[in-house]
Design a protein around this nucleic acid. Structure first.
Lengths: 302, 302
DNA sequence: GCAGATGATAATATTACGTTATCAAAAGGA
DNA sequence: TCCTTTTGATAACGTAATATTATCATCTGC
């Protein structure tokens, strides 16, 4: 590890060209300069100065070290600037949420990144469990989760409620939907599909619905923005969070079935309790709350 | 200036998460770690750790400093790699010579730079005096000069001789060239034009030639590769070093007058005496010698 | 709620570092 | 070429920075 003080003395020496003058400039004595340079040379293992009598030229290594030291000084100045000023328009913002939510939020975040080019938005679509883990490991700073895992390290703030939607091709809008309809249409599966479908179907079609594995599968896709494509083309039905359905471009091709027993998840903004986030996160928190403010707890239709 | 040791301790602490374990890892005692972190915090002026009981979270500043420290460690590792190994295919090569020479040499150097992308060729066309000064100031490492300035700091190596050429439009090739021809054609001047013309003309047309200022001027251009354009178009004559004439694309349009008293400059490769150049310069030295090996001392034609 | 572990603090020991004193030798001027 | 002045190196010493030991308060996990 390079001694910063010796390096600084070396830089001054290179710029000044004389040991004595360097000492004066640094408010120390000439032997001090000599000793520091000597130690620095011992440390890097090669001579930095090619001594010709009382004058010197830099060796190749000296030259490299000089340039290194210069850039290090600049970097340090930059560091202190960053330390002093918490710039709300600069730095990395690491946020995680569900894939559907990510596709919804990302365009809004990108707009801001375009305005403030110093910002770097890193948004990750991930399952609840992973979001929690990454928060705890400080890999991310904000997360949107549905299942607030118990941990004294985390704090949660409710953002609203997100319903699960039963989505059919629009052709089925004109007729009442019963379990037989679903069996006929077939299920488009996706990573959380089984879990969602199980919750929604067992609550609403409990008499006939047994298990997701018994459903007729018509497809599987793990790309969040592609799940509704087969549905829109009449190939099957699926169960998805409101967020994912809302932002499908061709709404007209979908039919969101009104269901008796609404199934919903509460959404939470999660963060580490003792972590004070930089100012740049403020806008993102505000924006997330604003964007999700429309998510009300659904009422049971009578 | 940031204390490198404290920073290193801080990095380890962040990675390990415990003061005691950090101390063990660094072969020191726990109070040492505590004190170093405390001093580091005092130095940067803000708390780096948000202490929650015996645990801690990084503050914004702590996080910034941690990242800073990590990249600094990597840079230092890179530095030592560069110090240990004198890579002949990496780094900056700073060379200066006359403009004509530069236009001649640069394409050859660029070929090498294309092969070894780590190389950075900086070639500067400059007058002799400036080349010498820049060598002394370590702004460049190699120079090609014609007038070896006396300095105990510099060493010179002869590269050969470069003649001055009297160049006329090709139309004049069929007739003997006398001073009246020159007067008739007119002089194309350039930065070194007066000096060159004076030397060549006074030695070969001494009876009639009086001074450059008396010549009929037909043009002036300071772009080395443009000087011969007006000559090739029949607009005038000029005096230029062999090197500049040789690499004019349309040789057929030029007529290099055979002269009785050859005027030539000896070319020297100059460098600082006590400066040991990195290995990457070896190829360039060799190439320069190779490229200029054709430059013989011209014999007086009988 | 208790035992073990953990970090903070004060006092002390040690090490690293800068200074003074001195020397040898290199520049620079006559 | 000689002499003076300046300059950098080295050794010995003193000071300041840093680590350690001892101890305490308090947190964490069982």
């Amino acid at each position: 590890m390079i001694n910063q003080q010796w390096l600084h003395t070396f830089l001054t020496l290179v710029e000044v060209g004389h040991f004595t003058q360097t000492a004066e400039k640094l408010n120390m004595t000439q032997p001090g300069v000599s000793q520091q340079i000597k130690k620095l040379e011992e440390q890097v293992g090669v001579p930095l100065l090619n001594r010709i009598g009382k004058r010197f030229e830099l060796t190749r290594e000296g030259e490299i070290l000089y340039r290194f030291g210069c850039s290090r000084q600049q970097e340090e100045a930059q560091l202190f600037r960053e330390l002093r000023f918490d710039d709300p328009h600069k730095g990395e913002c690491r946020i995680a949420c569900s894939g559907a939510m990510a596709t919804f939020l990302y365009p809004h975040f990108l707009k801001r990144q375009k305005i403030h080019s110093g910002l770097m938005v890193a948004i990750e679509g991930a399952p609840n469990e992973r979001i929690i883990q990454n928060l705890l490991k400080n890999v991310i700073d904000l997360g949107i989760v549905t299942q607030p895992a118990f941990s004294t390290e985390l704090v949660y703030e409710s953002l609203g409620f997100e319903s699960l939607c039963l989505v059919l091709p629009s052709a089925y809008a004109s007729q009442p939907t019963n379990f037989d309809t679903l069996e006929e249409v077939g299920f488009i599966d996706h990573p959380d599909g089984a879990h969602y479908a199980d919750r929604l179907l067992s609550a609403n079609f409990g008499e006939q619905f047994r298990s997701v594995s018994k459903l007729r599968k018509k497809g599987y896709i793990n790309q969040i923005n592609q799940i509704l494509v087969p549905v829109s083309e009449g190939l099957g039905f699926t169960v998805l969070p409101e967020m994912a359905v809302r932002h499908f471009p061709q709404q007209a091709l979908l039919y969101v079935v009104p269901i008796k027993v609404p199934i919903y998840d509460e959404l939470f903004l999660a963060r580490k309790k003792h972590r004070i986030l930089p100012k740049r996160y403020e806008w993102f928190e505000k924006k997330i709350k604003e964007l999700l403010s429309g998510l009300q707890k659904p009422k049971t239709p009578v």
